[in-house]
Design a binder for these strands. Sequence first.
DNA 1: CTCACTTATACTGTATACATAATACAGTGC
DNA 2: GCACTGTATTATGTATACAGTATAAGTGAG
Lengths: 231, 231
Amino acid sequence: MEPIARRKTTKEIVYDQLKRSILSGELEPNETMTETSLAESLHISRTPVREAVGDLTKEGLLIQIPRKGFKVRRIDEDDMEQILYLRISIEMRSVKMLVDHITDEELEKLDALVDEQKVAIQNNDRIRYIELDQMLHRHLLKLSNQNILEQILQELYNLTRLIGHAAISKEGRMEEVIQEHRDIINALRERDEEKAADLMRHHLLTTASSVKKQREQLKNNNGNSDSIGGL
Amino acid sequence: MEPIARRKTTKEIVYDQLKRSILSGELEPNETMTETSLAESLHISRTPVREAVGDLTKEGLLIQIPRKGFKVRRIDEDDMEQILYLRISIEMRSVKMLVDHITDEELEKLDALVDEQKVAIQNNDRIRYIELDQMLHRHLLKLSNQNILEQILQELYNLTRLIGHAAISKEGRMEEVIQEHRDIINALRERDEEKAADLMRHHLLTTASSVKKQREQLKNNNGNSDSIGGL
DNA sequence: CTCACTTATACTGTATACATAATACAGTGC
DNA sequence: GCACTGTATTATGTATACAGTATAAGTGAG
């Protein structure tokens, strides 16, 4: 029999829910909350809330302000660039390492992820699109068997998403991403190490510059940059 | 006025103490503890212990085994290599960025750190030597104003130290390190970006290979690799 | 009306108590 | 002697209660 999935702890539920709210942009960096208030609104005790908030703070998604509570972290251009730099380092390495021993089966699984991503676009399901994007990038690390880098990438990826959904969805960009993903996978299929790594770098750079442009535009359109989790 | 250093919370004390024990090698990866037992031995409640342990687990220094407790994480060659790779990425970037705007004053402060490190060697104070090493590397990140990379480096550095003290202190290596540090600082002084970055890479690679050799030797000398937190 | 000082409020940190669930162990039946 | 089952133990997860302290609110004197 399949092992039964153990039921989630309250802390985990709070953690997941809070993280979703943060990453989806539902929770904005200006509003502050307290452990007590959040616990009350969820009708649970402070303990699991406190732990979940602590974890998210350690991950850099929240910041705690002494005596005031906590709120969503704000990411600036500088942070963005550092994150991008590291992601490029990590992900170029990951595809390079994969070239030699990735199997056809695994390549097909990657294809499947991209296919699903395409469906998500057609359904206009941005949440799912991003989720799949994350799965794809993460999966490459998992396949290349680099647990430590995988963990760090995970952190970086989450921070990336603090930029906000609005900034990600520049018109037509999602379709481009699909193509870039396909290109990377194909380069892996051709066992072309340099090409795969270059395409990955290109993909990340392009995404970043697209996000940057979109951000600037949003910033100009409404003076209040806060409303989209801006600069 | 300088802000008064607020007195440490119990959690922080536990965190620091536990971390010290882990990084100094005092606590070995075979012995397991529980929240309850640790709390009792410290004569405090489980709450701060639980939080400290949770944090250290998130940092990758401890691993929790369901229903059994927790213990110090074991680092293998693969992990080591990933850590090294990322450290090189981060620290090469940091010196490159520094070249342009580091001041003479800051350079002197770096010199001072190396001087102090030399003293530590003369006093045969390994703990202090390592502490200063960490301060130096971290300081470079701080000076280059890269908060996110600084935080990641901090995590990586801690993981590095899980290798254990014995492995670090290969005969004569500490003196070499001093020289390598000086070389890097001098390259910064000469505003030679490429040289500084190369020396940094060299420094990290050399350290890693030295550690690796030392580890293998220790492993051969006593069949029980556990005793030095080995492979 | 303003400033200093007191009082109140509320947020966090810690202790404690309890619930739940998994493991170890012992006892019983075969 | 072995397997199964029920019980005890123990580790974690969660709730609750309490203490300390920083900020805010309020109050009174000048």
